[in-house]
């Protein structure tokens, strides 16, 4: 102990501490987050802490009892999944009013997020946070996922999940680097403009198939550079810039007098 105390002022101490803290947070997260069972059996203490966090950070807009208002949605019955999605992707708390809440670094750590989720889940039943098994791409069928994705998702998120535009400045974000857990939660809870895809519409297995399809996209394209996977417009742009650019360069060289 003495040795530890002696090194308290070592210049690497903050780094070591930070690493430790991250390790602990990660451990807590691993224990708490993925299991709906743990959300269900959230201790009263978690709910209490979550309530305090809520009062301090969310109640200004969502109201002291999360009842919402004309312009702000009520959180009663949205479930732990909605809270985990919004808070762990940094969409909530919102930074500023805009067409839609945007993804940013999360404000709360995993433990606080789960406490908030536990509190909101205690207000009314709603979708729980999916288990690790439910969102495991390896267990899904990419071909089935591709078919479901095409009909239900591609019109907003693009055929390979590169994102797309909605009206009035809103947009469907790219899904390329989204955590599978958040993809599942988004389908389940329908954040913001996105509609809800409940289990009767897209079954839990089909949701996992979609996750498997999106994971398949991490391999990139069989054809080479994906060029943003935005379709013919970006392809046309590259044809003009790279293709015609190189060829006109060559033409200028051919037409120029040799020295």
């Amino acid at each position: 102990m003495k040795a530890l105390a002696a090194r308290r002022h070592h210049r690497f101490a903050p780094v070591v501490l930070l690493l430790l803290a991250l390790l602990v947070t990660g451990g807590v997260y691993a224990l708490l987050a993925p299991s709906p069972a743990s959300a269900d059996s959230a201790s009263t203490q978690d709910i209490e802490t979550g309530k305090k966090l809520f009062q301090a950070n969310c109640a200004t807009c969502h109201g002291p009892n999360a009842e919402g208002s004309d312009t702000v949605p009520s959180l009663v019955g949205v479930g732990a999944a909605a809270v985990d999605f919004q808070v762990s992707t940094g969409r909530m708390p919102m930074a500023a009013n805009g067409p839609q809440a945007i993804e940013k670094p999360a404000q709360f750590d995993a433990e606080q997020t789960s406490q908030l989720a536990a509190y909101v889940a205690s207000l009314g039943t709603g979708p729980a946070i999916p288990t690790a098994d439910q969102v495991d791409p390896a267990k899904g069928d990419a071909a089935s996922g591709a078919a479901i994705f095409r009909t239900n998702c591609a019109m907003c998120h693009n055929a390979v999940g590169a994102g797309g535009a909605l009206s009035e400045g809103k947009f469907a974000p790219a899904l390329t680097d989204v955590d599978p857990r958040n993809i599942y939660q988004a389908m389940l809870t329908g954040p913001q403009s996105m509609p809800v895809f409940n289990d009767a519409n897209v079954s839990p297995d089909e949701k996992r198939d979609i996750i498997a399809y999106l994971a398949e996209q991490h391999d990139g394209s069989a054809g080479g550079l994906t060029l943003g996977a935005l379709g013919p417009v970006s392809e046309g742009l590259w044809a003009w810039v790279v293709g015609l650019g190189l060829l006109i360069g060559a033409a200028v060289w051919i037409g120029a007098k040799s020295s």
């Binding site: 019109m155 693009n158 590169a162 379709g231 013919p232 003009w240």
Partner: peptide, 12 residues
């Protein structure tokens, strides 16, 4: 039934 965002023809 399906359609994807970025539904466009080739540039010409």
């Amino acid at each position: 039934s399906p359609v994807s965002a970025g539904a466009q023809p080739d540039w010409y």
